[in-house]
């Protein structure tokens, strides 16, 4: 039985395509600007570095903001690991204990940061805990506040959807002990969600700006803060190069997470 292609869907499809192109265009331009002389793209820069080629822009970025990159990597790995190690068990446990009172409330509590706009949350945190500016631990804590809810929710939703609780009961009746249940039921059921959650956590941390910006000092910050500095002080090609590096980190993470089943409606 063939469905008639409604004109609305065709129009919608075209508009989706157009929108997608609109979204991609600036990105493509910026990345191109990092590699090619930007005059050819119609962009002229007031602070044009004469004779700058792609290599110089990237090298400049790495030189100037190399420490930011490293800090970003450190924070991302730490925040991601914590998010996964705490969030995955929490999400799973909450999904399985669904009928007990308080499980729902606890889950809402754990995912609360996702509902509060970043800047408000950042201000709240920093008023309450005046930071020793730039301390790595504090940065990690700030990031964890956002990575943890994502991990909890991603893993929790998968656990709920695959009805992990009843499945584990079935495994018990089939003779599986605790370790075996984890190995033969829990792990296969949650594998993809764990991978996706890890990637999303990394991506969130990699791009986090609100809390980081308020915590950072000129010497110690993450790469997004470096981007801010670059946008406000550097020439266009350099800023473009820095952005390209940001994208180079972000795009693979997001695409991989999508491939593992991540659904991006709520950001990141």
């Amino acid at each position: 039985m063939a469905r008639r292609r409604r004109p609305l869907i065709i129009a919608g499809g075209i508009s989706a395509l157009v929108l997608a192109l609109v979204l991609l265009l600036p990105l493509a331009l910026v990345v191109a600007a990092a590699f090619a002389p930007s005059e050819s793209l119609g962009i002229s820069s007031e602070q044009w570095i004469a004779g700058a080629g792609a290599g110089r822009a990237f090298r400049y970025v790495l030189q100037t903001y190399g420490t930011h990159l490293i800090t970003s990597a450190q924070v991302a790995l730490a925040a991601g690991a914590i998010a996964l190690l705490l969030g995955a068990p929490a999400g799973t446990a909450l999904a399985m204990a669904e009928r007990r009172r308080g499980a729902r409330a606890l889950e809402t509590l754990l995912t609360l940061p996702l509902g509060v706009p970043g800047i408000a949350a950042a201000i709240a945190l920093l008023s309450a805990f005046p930071g020793r500016g730039g301390a790595l631990g504090l940065l990690v804590v700030g990031h964890v506040l956002y990575t943890l809810p994502y991990a909890t929710r991603t893993v929790g939703e998968t656990a709920r959807a695959s009805r992990l609780g009843p499945l584990l009961d079935a495994a018990r009746t089939l003779g599986a002990g605790r370790v075996q249940r984890v190995r033969f039921v829990l792990w296969p059921a949650l594998r993809r969600a764990l991978g996706s959650a890890a990637l999303v956590a990394l991506a969130v941390s990699w791009g986090e700006f609100n809390v980081t910006f308020l915590l950072a000092t000129p010497s110690r910050g993450t790469f997004p803060t470096a981007l801010y500095l670059s946008y406000t002080t550097n020439s266009f090609p350099v800023a473009a190069a820095a952005t390209t590096i940001m994208l180079a980190g972000l795009v693979p993470l997001v695409l991989l997470a999508l491939a593992l089943g991540h659904r991006p409606e709520q950001g990141a």
Binding site: S162, R163, P166, L167, D169, A170, R172, T173, G175, A176, G177, V185, P188, A189
Partner: peptide
């Protein structure tokens, strides 16, 4: 005694097959 040791073959109403297998 926990379920793992009772050696009863249970067929659940919702079957509970491992869909990943």
């Amino acid at each position: 005694s926990p379920p793992e040791r009772r050696r009863l073959g249970v067929v659940f109403q919702d079957l509970r097959l491992f869909d990943f297998l």
